[in-house]
Amino acid sequence: MPGEVADIALMTESPGLGDSSPNALSSLAPVIERAKGGDMAAFEQIIEHHQRRVITTAWRMLGNSEDARDAAQEVFLRVYKYLRGFRSDQDFAAWLYRIVINVCRDHARIRSRHSGFASFEVEQELGSFDSLASTGNIESEMIQAQQRAMIDEALKTLSKKERAAIVLRDLEGLSTEKVAEVLGSSQTTVRSQISSARAKIKKYRERVFKQTRRME
């Protein structure tokens, strides 16, 4: 076990793939400054720029679009509330991701208190994308929705911290360093969480595929 920890501590960084590219952020810096000064048009621009990424991350964390939409709304409220405290030398994307993760954690806590673990409903998910289903291929959309449901179930086998780490690292493409910054953990802890999460997802997938083969 100590050897394992030492191995994890020795690991290196892989490049981040998120939307925190220096160019995108530097072009947004003046907008952020204007929004900090109370310019609502600038704040609207920040929402426009980040809302798709925010709602996608929230969807990956929560597993359904309705909760993701509510969470995204709450994220932008908190961004507005705390924007004055944001320093220009900070990484805005990491700061934003931290808010997204915190909001999703709060949502999940409230949801579990009221109704236990929420399940991903394929029909509900399809229902909220009527326009797509009617124009595209319903069958392929159904398969996609089923796969999303399976992946959501796989993600549910993880602890909250593991889920946050795997969503940010493997699905959002952030570097381990950034994930550690967002989650307020050390890189060693994040690598350990990622390692454990990948092993659990593999195990879940194998179990599901075995069951499917048996049923066939």
Binding site: T56, W59, E125, L132, Q144, M150, I151, I166, D170
Partner: peptide, 10 residues
Amino acid sequence: LRASTPPEFD
């Protein structure tokens, strides 16, 4: 895990 794309948010 990565194959599942998120729904297209309209």
